[in-house]
């Protein structure tokens, strides 16, 4: 018995990839490559001078500058408005899709639907962007409507899979016998959903909504293609600015965006860990 157990462990040690020469070096190098630029960016956002290369002292100067910049204010507001709506709509749709793909008897085309929901994860974003551009341009021309609706619809669409995944994962973990028990105790399907499924699903929905929010907030490509004149979100505004002069103000905005994303992703992690 003892030998049987010892054998695979030894084998694992002998052939462990972690023990190959250079593995640690490569891992550290990858890590540095990934995070060093971000750390430098964050660091320089606190630079008091206007140079991107020369450190002149610690200050919040660029954060104040960005805060008082009216264009930045407008872009931030727009980003939030779009991200909030996109998160809301995509989460509602994703919840319905997740219920439809896990809480019904298997039906023909279920896999196809599953693939279609996840399509934005697999199709290159630029392809979706061009396709949306063409469709929306036609509609814009036909109706004359130039409003935010297009951006909201586009963001909702590509946020659905991100909202869908945590919700579906949660539903699949959930014991269906709870819903059976609710039905046995006189709960109609709707009341069983309200009183049993939804409360248990809530952490998944919250995680999905926050993920969708972050994804929408950070999007550049699709927004850039779909937006009408004057509809700059924070990322597209930054892209526009970078084409001209790079000021540390960009560092400050990027750092702030990063902070929001990290915060939300940590929250998602916490929610999912606590409730299992």
């Amino acid at each position: 018995m003892a030998n049987l157990h010892a054998a695979p462990v030894n084998k694992g040690k002998l052939f462990s990839i972690y023990k190959l020469p250079g593995f640690t070096f490569i891992a550290v190098a990858c890590f540095l490559m990934l995070y060093a630029p971000i750390l430098i960016l964050v660091g320089y956002s606190f630079n008091s001078g206007s140079s991107l290369a020369l450190w002149e002292g610690l200050s919040l100067r660029w954060y104040f500058a960005a805060w008082e910049n009216e264009t930045v204010q407008g872009a931030t507001l727009l980003s939030l408005v779009i991200a909030l709506q996109a998160a809301l709509y995509s989460t509602v749709l994703a919840t319905m899709a997740a219920l439809g793909t896990t809480r019904t008897r298997p039906f023909r085309g279920q896999t196809a639907i599953y693939t279609m929901i996840n399509q934005p994860l697999m199709v290159p974003e630029i392809v979706t962007a061009v396709a949306l551009l063409i469709v929306f341009a036609t509609i814009k021309q036909a109706t004359g409507y130039q409003g935010l609706g297009f951006l909201v619809i586009a963001h909702t669409a590509f946020c659905i899979p991100f909202a869908y995944l945590p919700i579906r994962a949660r539903l699949e973990d959930m014991d269906t016998s709870l819903e059976t028990a609710a039905a046995d105790l006189y709960a109609t399907p709707w009341r069983s959903f309200r009183r049993v499924t939804l409360p248990l699903l809530w952490p998944g929905i919250l995680a999905g909504a926050m993920l969708a929010f972050v994804i929408s907030l950070d999007d550049v490509v699709i927004t850039e293609f779909v937006k009408s004149a004057g509809q700059d979100t924070l990322p597209t505004y930054m892209l526009g600015q970078l084409r001209r002069v790079i000021t540390p103000e960009m560092n400050a905005i990027a750092s702030a965006l990063l902070a929001v994303s990290v915060l939300l992703v940590s929250l998602i992690f916490l929610i999912n860990r606590k409730k299992t």
């Binding site: 059976t180 028990a181 609710a182 046995d184 105790l185 006189y186 409360p199």
Partner: peptide, 29 residues
């Protein structure tokens, strides 16, 4: 459908509602 039958079940795995208290579980029906 099950919710219209005056018949209740004690399930093999109990299937208690994990988000409700003992009293809320008992009062569910």
């Amino acid at each position: 459908p099950p919710f219209k039958r005056p018949v209740n079940t004690v399930f093999q795995n109990y299937a208690l509602f994990p988000h409700l208290t003992v009293a809320e579980n008992i009062g569910f029906g």
